[in-house]
Amino acid sequence: MKWYSYSKNGDRVRVPLVLSTSTSTSDPNVASVRDSLKTHLRKKFCPMQALVIDDDPAILLMMTSILNGLGYQVTTAVDGKQGLQELTDSILPDVVLVDWNMPIMNGLEFVKTVRSQTQFNQLPIIMVTTELEMSQVALSADAGISEYIMKPFSPIMIIEKLQMVGVLS
């Protein structure tokens, strides 16, 4: 249990609810109930988390504003490598929105690296990019993205894609 105290802003207590993360159960009903319970508890007690990776501060600001408005807590990173670090160090997000063209590690390499790790198999990843050719959409689909948004985008486009990947009702 962790206790956080804020000057003139009350206290916050964080109690981890330990649920088995074992994937070994062979009973699909047990697995289904377990997953539903985890999702339910998470939604009830913990706001949705989004990781946004983009090297453009204006995009990070805009995306954060849209996602905050939808009730998400947002973590940002400015390149794929920093994004990977956030994935490892912070709470596992409910969704990742990643740009393609970034320094150090681009979005495509980020997606390939993330998908090579089994614990991130189910993590919804949305590519948000200025790359508009069909071959590039196909390339990122092959790399394992869940959805694709072409820049420029509007809030409604983000909302619709979040619904599509099942992280917004």
Partner: peptide, 11 residues
């Protein structure tokens, strides 16, 4: 095409 169209349908 950015509005509501799933990527796999676009492809």
């Amino acid at each position: 095409v950015n509005r509501g169209l799933p990527m796999n349908f676009l492809l």
